[in-house]
Design a binder for these strands. Structure first.
Lengths: 166, 166
DNA sequence: CCTTTTTGGTTGAACACTCAACGAAGACAC
DNA sequence: GTGTCTTCGTTGAGTGTTCAACCAAAAAGG
């Protein structure tokens, strides 16, 4: 079998190029819009909102750090720092895991729940305004299909029943 | 006209919810993968790669700070810090604007161009692996359409001819 | 002209994230 | 048991981003 060294790069086609740039632009603008809205109106960045939202849907509003990290797509370190910050605000409390003594649990406090409920409407509105309200109906289906495909192979990201959107 | 206070929030439908979460998950994983690959193999975060890439396509490898900020979708402050960092590395140089004396120009140095060229193949490979190689052909069209629609109304993000992908 | 407003860009402090190192406890070998 | 490996989570330093404050120069208004 012939050996040929570090494959010559397959550059992006014109169409891929334009899709890629449009994607980057959109994501950058969206991230900025969501982060700014939440920071301004609720005093938290989007990443922290997601933590609170996931906790709010969990049984007992409690989740193990490792699971919480998983479903918020954040590194253990990031989550640890985040929870530390949320704890200072009184929105989350840490508890020891009952059986596994390495484990730590994150619990959403009543104050945390209140902050989330207060933040949710504005956040959902921003998500609508920047995303869903701009889509034609069939584009929503395509979008579902698209990201389902793209996430395929990675572990499934939690089937939530909540309405707080992240 | 009847006045009704801060509209009751229109929550996301089940389909929107699932599209939204899939989107967030994908973007988080993608961002992480790209940033890690570039940081490891080229010593720069994705945002800095984009700065170099946009400069490499500009006439004279030179762009005004404000324009560079525009096409990289970054705030003036962010770009200023970024260029400062890139200047330390010797990849970018600042020059004064010839006619407008407030203006500053960012110029890609030869070292910067070399760093970009060295980084490009690995970066493009990562983009392929995490995005385009996972798409069925017609999904690429849908993706183009989708983000074109979503970026509609915001100013057009620059029609580049380069192959370095960002 | 002179004043006011707007635009272009930088700065420093506060905050968020990454990475590597670490300790503590469960799991597994024997 | 004892030792090793692995998993869980935290920590601190380094780096990137945001935000508000700021200066300098151009533009606008009189």
């Amino acid at each position: 079998m012939p050996h040929h060294a570090p494959d010559r790069p397959r550059w992006l086609s014109a169409e891929e190029q334009s899709a890629w740039r449009a994607f980057l632009t959109f994501v950058a603008r969206l991230d900025e819009a969501l982060d700014r809205q939440l920071q301004r109106d609720a005093g938290m960045p989007h990443a922290y909102y997601q933590v609170l939202a996931m906790l709010s849907e969990a049984p007992g509003r409690t989740l193990r750090m490792s699971q919480l990290a998983e479903i918020t797509t954040s590194s253990p370190s990031r989550l640890s720092h985040a929870v530390a910050r949320l704890e200072e605000k009184g929105w989350v409390r840490r508890e020891r895991h009952p059986t596994d003594r390495r484990g730590a649990l994150a619990v959403l406090t009543d104050d945390g729940m209140a902050a989330l409920v207060a933040a949710a409407p504005g956040h959902v509105a921003a998500v609508r305004e920047n995303l869903f309200d701009r889509l034609r109906p069939e584009q929503l289906h395509q979008m579902c299909d698209l990201f389902a495909t793209l996430n395929d192979g990675d572990d499934p990201p939690h089937e939530g029943s909540g309405r707080l959107s992240r």
